[in-house]
């Protein structure tokens, strides 16, 4: 085990899998220079220009070419640079990648991994900070992965690169410097299994992606105040670990979902609705969602801070939920 950063964990996972499987290759802007965040540092030297393809700023074709290459039997990593640019490739993603297997009656195997570093990061303002992961859970055909630790990032990326499904891999870019232990040989982590980050019986907190460390910090502060939170990091949103969440809420009776994305229409709504459908209203004493207000991410640090979810807001939301 080595203590490495999250971005290095992602780099090692891709490296391991590309050494194992020569059909894996990378396409995206600046990937031959190591990628915007160093996720592909050293890859050009090892794998050459045919497998590490720096592309023009042509998101439609980055996405669509990745799909076409998958249809003839290769396994592309489609690097979107920053999540927000996937909007320039929406037809290729939603109408093509997500649909070909179904529309063609199972003839197509769209085995692509689409990497999209997302979330609030270094005051990048409204077009470089979005968290729209809930959109993609709504689209049949796609797997949605939202890791928050170095080990999970590595293990889930390995699974993604061995999957025949199109996988949307939301790298949590604000957590790239976060360090943690990652095994030398990275084993796949199955999709759809939450990480039980903390155990407690008073309330269940469900969370994912870049906000997870602050939720864990908040859980520590709550414990000091006598509130024991059961914290589940979903790690993947489609599929998601409904069983673990339902079991936890069945015990605690209280559910708080925390995500960095806008609350309205966020995946938290789906989690809450499903839990109530499964358990019925009698077993669930209180539910709440904590996310951003429904406004774009602003630039100025005090404005950004005012809107974004943080540890103090998580503590306050949990305490309010305990009173209700």
């Amino acid at each position: 085990m080595a203590e490495i950063t999250l971005v290095e964990a992602a780099r090692r996972a891709a490296l391991q899998e590309m050494r194992r499987d020569p059909s894996i290759w990378v396409l995206g802007e600046d990937v031959a220079r190591g990628g915007l965040f160093g996720q592909y540092r050293g890859f050009l030297e090892e794998f050459g220009e045919s497998r590490i393809v720096s592309t023009p700023i042509s998101e439609s074709v980055i996405m669509g070419a990745g799909l076409g290459a998958a249809l003839v039997g290769t396994r592309p990593i489609i690097e979107m640079r920053i999540f927000d640019f996937v909007m320039c490739a929406m037809d290729e993603l939603v109408n093509q990648v997500a649909k070909v297997r179904y529309m063609f009656g199972g003839q197509a195997k769209p085995a692509v991994v689409i990497r999209m570093p997302h979330g609030i990061w270094r005051n990048s303002a409204a077009q470089h900070s979005q968290m729209l992961e809930s959109w993609f859970t709504h689209i049949p055909g796609l797997v949605v992965v939202v890791p928050s630790t170095p080990a999970d990032t590595a293990g889930l990326l390995v699974t993604a690169l061995r999957s025949d499904d199109p996988v949307l891999f939301f790298d949590p870019k604000n957590l790239f410097p976060l360090t943690g232990e990652v095994p030398e040989v990275i084993a796949p982590i199955p999709f759809g299994q939450a990480r039980h980050a903390r155990r407690g019986d008073d309330l269940t907190i469900v969370t994912w992606s870049a906000i997870v460390p602050q939720v864990e910090e908040a859980a520590g502060m709550l414990a000091a105040r006598g509130i024991a939170a059961d914290v589940l990091d979903l790690r993947t949103l489609w599929p998601w670990d409904e069983a673990a969440v339902v079991a936890s809420v069945a015990r605690t009776g209280r559910l708080l979902v925390v995500h960095e994305a806008v609350t309205t229409g966020g995946f938290g709504a789906e989690v809450v609705a499903r839990v109530i459908e499964r358990l019925g209203t009698a077993q669930v004493k209180a539910v709440a969602r904590l996310g951003q207000p429904r406004v774009p991410v602003p630039f100025a640090p005090p404005l950004e801070d005012a809107l974004k979810v943080d540890t103090a807001k998580v503590v306050a939301a949990a305490e309010a939920l305990m009173r209700s």
Partner: peptide, 11 residues
């Protein structure tokens, strides 16, 4: 068009 281009690249 993008799919054709990618299929060619894959081949």
């Amino acid at each position: 068009i993008p799919i054709a281009v990618g299929a060619a690249q894959g081949l």
